[in-house]
Every structure is written in structure tokens, then in C-alpha cells.
């Protein structure tokens, strides 16, 4: 057993666990942050995507011990109370989900994309989301949601000069 210190959604968290444990298992099992999903266990489907220092990473193939010094954001992070993140808003407005199981990972990938590229083209969206599978096949709506979120983030940037 090892003591693992993590910074998740801006809060310090400590867990006692097997040193080999994946970040995904720590989130789901030890911290009950169940929004991050298991889909394949080999980084192929994107359901477990979280942000590590702002970059989209697969938590199922990330050892928790290796990310102690980094800032981790899960799907439970981007909303502020009742106020949703523009990407979450856009997914709802475009009805870009069917069963919704891929949605948390998809949203985290989109947040990472829009943080580094404020105005992605359609092919940039497709390239950067290609590691996220939506088995229900809502891809075209997800692309629309990303475009909508990009527009609304650009507008809010003018107002606040800041970006999450």
C-alpha cells in the first residue's frame, strides 16, 4: 500500500492504495468521482478522459502515483454549482448525447481542445476527438456542440478576458 496525494478539481486528496493503481480506479473507487467512466482499459475509447495539467489524458492507463504533482480536472470540475461550463451547455443544446456514457470523456476532450485552440476547424475537431468513441453514433451533433461552445466561449472571452 502507498499513500498517494493528488490535486483533483482544485482540492487536495489523499488515498491509501496499491502503488500500481490507475488514476481511473482511484477516482471511481476511492474518491467516488464516478463521472469518469471505464470503457476499454487500454486508452482506446476515451470514456475515462480527464485533464492533467490542462491536457486530455486517459486515466485508465495513467498510474495515479505518477500524477501527484499535477492538476487533475474531472467531469465533476468544470461546472460551478448550477452554472454549467459552455461545453456542457452546448452538449445539452445540441442534444449531442444518446446514452450519455461517452459524454464525460467527450466533454473533457473538448474542453482541452478549446483551451488550446479557440477556433478549431471541423477537421481539427475530428482529429482531436478521434480517440473518443460514441457507440450510439452522435458524432455529427458532437461536432456541432463543439462549434457552438467555441462561439460561446469566444463571446464570453470578450466579456471577461478569461478562459477556464
Amino acid at each position: 500500500m502507498a499513500t498517494i496525494n493528488l490535486a483533483i478539481n482544485g482540492r487536495p486528496r489523499t488515498v491509501e492504495a496499491d502503488p500500481q493503481i490507475s488514476l481511473l480506479t482511484v477516482l471511481r473507487e476511492n474518491l467516488d468521482l464516478i463521472g469518469t467512466k471505464y470503457g476499454c482499459g487500454e486508452g482506446q475509447c476515451g470514456a475515462c478522459t480527464v485533464l492533467i495539467d490542462g491536457r486530455a489524458q486517459r486515466s485508465c492507463i495513467t498510474r495515479a502515483e505518477t500524477v501527484g504533482q499535477k492538476q487533475i480536472t474531472t467531469i465533476e470540475g468544470p461546472a460551478h454549482g448550477e452554472r454549467l461550463h459552455p461545453v456542457q451547455e452546448a452538449f445539452l443544446e445540441e442534444d449531442a448525447l444518446q446514452c450519455g456514457y461517452c459524454t464525460p470523456g467527450m466533454i473533457m476532450s473538448v474542453v482541452a481542445l478549446l483551451n488550446r485552440n479557440h477556433h478549431p476547424t471541423q477537421s481539427e475537431i475530428i482529429d482531436s476527438l478521434n480517440g473518443n468513441i460514441c457507440r450510439c453514433g452522435a458524432y455529427s451533433r458532437i461536432i456541432s456542440a463543439v462549434q457552438k461552445a467555441a462561439t460561446s466561449l469566444a463571446k464570453s472571452e470578450i466579456g471577461t478576458g478569461a478562459r477556464q
Binding site: 463521472g35 467531469i75 454549467l84 456542457q88 452538449f91 448525447l97 450519455g100 466533454i107
Partner: peptide, 17 residues
């Protein structure tokens, strides 16, 4: 659109797993 969609986009909905 999907009713109660907020629980799904915020990761709060508890699926069977």
C-alpha cells in the same frame, strides 16, 4: 432534448456500473 440531461453532462448520473 434529453430530459434531465444535466446529470449526464456533469457526470452525476449513476449508471449501473
Amino acid at each position: 432534448p434529453k430530459l434531465a440531461g444535466v446529470a449526464f453532462v456533469t457526470g452525476k448520473h449513476r449508471y449501473p456500473s
